[in-house]
Simulated assay, not measured.
Amino acid sequence: MDEKDHSHVTSFGYELIRDHVLTSILGKHEKDILYWAGKELARKFPLYSMDEASSFFSEAGWGSLVLDKTTKDSAFYSLQTVNLPSSGASRSHRLEAGFLAEQQQKVGGFLTECYDEQVKKNGVVHFQIKWDLKSIK
């Protein structure tokens, strides 16, 4: 099997798990559980800086992550999903949001949350990472 065939199988397998199995198993708690799972993934795969997040997202097959802007207590990212199948049109991106929140919290040292909003037209998901400058983790 050549590399191209292998990546197609991996993409299909990922779609099966992410868009069908997890949704079925997690039910109404899917978004909350995926968020905390993303935070756990961040603890197992720590980044040294948020600059590494784009590379991690690409290697994980989550898509192309771009930092749009930062403020004193927030960062705004856009994620261009990679070949999101029609079955993934309603996919929750709370896994990715939890991952970003935990990485920022570790790097910045402040309590952090991440919010996501999918723009369905072009497959872009926007994330706002917000940290509390009055808190120290």
Rank of each mutant, 00 (worst) to 15 (best):
W62M: 09
G63D: 11
S64F: 04
L65Y: 01
L65I: 03
L65C: 01
V66A: 05
L67Y: 06
L67S: 03
L67F: 07
D68F: 01
D68W: 00
K69T: 12
K69E: 15
K69F: 13
K69I: 05
T70E: 15
T70L: 03
T71S: 12
T71V: 04
D73M: 08
D73F: 01
S74M: 14
S74V: 05
F76L: 08
F76W: 09
F76N: 14
Y77M: 12
Y77H: 13
S78P: 01
L79A: 01
Q80T: 02
V82Q: 09
L84R: 10
L84I: 05
L84P: 06
P85D: 08
P85T: 04
P85V: 00
S86A: 05
S87Y: 03
G88H: 12
G88Y: 06
A89M: 06
A89C: 07
S90W: 04
R91P: 05
H93N: 10
H93R: 10
H93S: 12
R94K: 10
R94W: 00
R94A: 15
E96D: 14
E96Y: 15
E96R: 08
E96H: 12
E96L: 07
A97Q: 10
A97L: 10
G98S: 12
G98A: 11
G98Y: 04
F99H: 02
F99C: 10
L100R: 11
A101T: 03
A101S: 00
E102M: 13
E102L: 13
Q104D: 03
Q104A: 15
Q105E: 15
Q105T: 08
Q105Y: 04
K106V: 10
K106S: 15
V107H: 13
V107M: 05
V107N: 11
V107L: 14
G108T: 10
G108V: 07
G108F: 08
G108N: 15
G108Q: 10
G109S: 00
G109A: 02
T112Q: 01
T112H: 00
T112M: 04
E113K: 04
C114H: 06
Y115M: 13
Y115P: 02
Y115I: 14
Y115N: 15
D116G: 02
E117F: 09
E117V: 10
E117T: 12
E117R: 06
V119N: 11
V119D: 15
K120Q: 08
K121F: 04
G123I: 02
V124L: 08
V125R: 02
V125S: 09
V125A: 01
H126F: 08
F127W: 09
F127K: 06
F127G: 11
Q128G: 01
I129L: 13
I129D: 02
I129R: 07
K130H: 13
W131I: 07
W131V: 04
D132C: 01
D132I: 00
D132H: 04
D132P: 02
L133W: 03
L133F: 00
L133A: 07
L133S: 04
K134C: 06
K134N: 11
K134A: 13
S135I: 04
S135H: 07
S135V: 12
S135Y: 08
S135P: 06
I136R: 12
I136N: 12
K137Y: 05
K137G: 00
